[in-house]
Design a protein around this nucleic acid. Sequence first.
DNA 1: GTGCATTGCGCAATGT
DNA 2: GACATTGCGCAATGCA
Lengths: 184, 184
Amino acid sequence: MEWVGSYQVQSHNANISNPAVSSSDLAGMDMLSYSPSQGLLRVGGEERVDEQMLGLSYLPYNPSCLSNSSSSLSSNLQQNHNPQDYSFLLPTLRAPLTKRSISKDSAEYRVRRERNNIAVRKSRDKARRRILLTQQRALQLQEENQKLQIRISQLTQEMDTLKHILSQRHLAGTEDGAAVGSSM
Amino acid sequence: MEWVGSYQVQSHNANISNPAVSSSDLAGMDMLSYSPSQGLLRVGGEERVDEQMLGLSYLPYNPSCLSNSSSSLSSNLQQNHNPQDYSFLLPTLRAPLTKRSISKDSAEYRVRRERNNIAVRKSRDKARRRILLTQQRALQLQEENQKLQIRISQLTQEMDTLKHILSQRHLAGTEDGAAVGSSM
DNA sequence: GTGCATTGCGCAATGT
DNA sequence: GACATTGCGCAATGCA
């Protein structure tokens, strides 16, 4: 009973029918170029692929198979599949019919789930911190950058002053015919 | 806060996910030193609040109410509440028992859900782009910073050289008793 | 194969 | 009331 979802998925994916939608996503992914219009697409889980490929994301794609929630399963099935359509039961598209009988009621399943949930929380926390750090770093670098810019301005100006002084002396020196033949 | 043990709790169902290749990329990118510890959070959806508030995340908290998934609801109830404990039915904590009859089967519900799903995808895409931009900005700033540092080194050195020259000339000038009384 | 880490996704609560 | 955010759990997948 717990595989119903999977079946639905499979039958749903039947629309795609191409289990090898292949890369395509790796293409636009480089974080160095990045185009504004349609961000990094990642071949979601449905048939939105095409849409996204065309930068038409966020369009209300067919919600066919993603129904339910604990509520009446039967009614959902009725809602998403006409009562006579049992095609999804056919192993046509490699339905995970016997994909290891890991009942969702099994203790092992729960243990696995719980472990993953913990890992997920941890991972996300890590991600949040990383993002925060990056933001702070960017801000910090920006500040430092301004200071450096200012420093450069000061140095540049000082340089000009010195050069001016030097040229003056040079002129004075030549005018006086003094012995001043050092560098420059 | 929220009504403890949201009573019915979500349930989800096996989500989709096509057999096609998934993204997986854009991950590594971090170059940051994240530390392991707690995390910011607020009122999630369950009763873990306390744990996390104390920075004790990731501990295998009681999975009590989150069990199930499309699978047997009855068995879950039995599993998570002893058959005689119906306290959760009491309006003690204002259980959203009748929190508006928005049947999950209603068309309106599905419409709402689908719209939210679209909004969520959009929002996450936006977030991803934002993060990427921040990373790029940090990198860019870092590069610029190095260039500025180098520029400063050059200017500083040049300054020293000029100053040296000036002092030399000054000495030479005084030695020669030449007429060099410009500024400085 | 086992176990944790990542990631996309939908759900629900909450914010705007 | 609609859309935007955010935390969460699920499942697939990456990875060691």
